[in-house]
Design a protein around this nucleic acid. Structure first.
Length: 265
DNA sequence: ACCTCGTCCTGGTTGC
DNA sequence: TGCAACCAGGACGAGG
């Protein structure tokens, strides 16, 4: 999304902003945020974890979190569930569509951007600084299920329910494994698997299960790469055992009970 | 400090 | 066929 949005937004000025959903900018007034955004010029579209960061020449930044069903559409054609509209100085329009209304827009002053993100997010798993050893340090002493620890954005940034299940399958680790008990080899496998699934997700441009779209309206294809997510009773691609479904931390959880044994290997 | 769970929200699916 | 109940989940606040 960031990669597709950057060429559309960078250098553009927000000439008119209309926020249609009062939930989007909570707790701030939609019309006040819209007024503040008007006239801002985009210098960069950045990303941190699951936040899109629209950086303006003023130093301020708009943090967009798409949550479940948010999408940013350039030149939308008859889109439904449009929650905000941005007119750009090249005459084109950016629409924010969000069926479930979980997404958020937060406009931050220059000094607040870095501290806000630092408080909410752990390391970026695709940067060189992210290591298996570092991952071990983040998990050390934690008694929560491994899956729950990985879904916590402060452990590392960017993994959601799909990517955690996929990463655990690749690393052959059980979702209920106590997070702090992984040995060096398991951490190495997990580290590799996390990078693999995120890189695959980016290459496939995300998973379109129903609502997710790229800014040009096209679909992602990561759903075609799923090894476990949503595949209950289908055979495991590695061993043929039927994929199991359970709940961990209130989330649907798919795994192979043979490949991902409860105990360490 | 850490952990778990309920809540928000809508539309698609399931079950009677 | 119609309608109610259920399911999907990221982040956050309450409570343990």
């Amino acid at each position: 999304m960031r990669r597709r949005l950057a060429p559309v937004l960078e250098g553009r000025t927000f000439t008119r902003v209309e926020i249609l959903d009062t939930r989007l900018t909570r707790p701030y007034e939609p019309h006040e945020v819209a007024a503040e955004l008007q006239g801002e010029r985009v210098v960069e579209v950045d990303r941190r974890g699951k936040y899109l960061i629209v950086r303006f020449a003023s130093g301020r930044a708009l943090l967009v979190h798409l949550r479940m069903t948010g999408t940013l559409l350039h030149e939308p054609d008859g889109a439904t569930h449009v929650r905000a509209l941005v007119e750009l100085d090249d005459g084109t329009t950016l629409a924010y569509r969000d069926v479930r209304r979980f997404g958020t827009w937060l406009l931050l002053e220059p000094a607040d951007v870095a501290p806000y993100l630092a408080a909410k997010l752990g390391e970026e798993p695709l940067l060189p600084a992210f290591t298996a050893k570092g991952l071990g340090e983040r998990l050390r002493g934690r008694r929560a299920p491994l899956k729950a620890a990985l879904l916590d954005q402060r452990t590392l940034a960017g993994l959601g329910n799909i990517y955690v299940d996929e990463a655990l399958w690749y690393s052959k680790l059980h979702p209920l494994r106590e997070a702090g008990t992984l040995d060096a080899d398991e951490l190495k496998r997990l580290h590799r698997a996390i990078r693999k699934v995120l890189e695959l997700g980016i290459a496939r441009q995300g998973s379109t299960l129903s609502d997710y779209r790229l800014p040009d309206g096209s679909s992602g294809s990561m759903q075609d790469e799923f090894r476990v997510y949503g595949r209950v009773a289908e055979p495991c691609d590695r061993c043929g055992t039927e994929i199991a479904k359970t709940r961990v931390g209130g989330r649907g959880t798919w795994f192979c009970s043979r490949c991902q044994a409860a105990q360490s290997n």
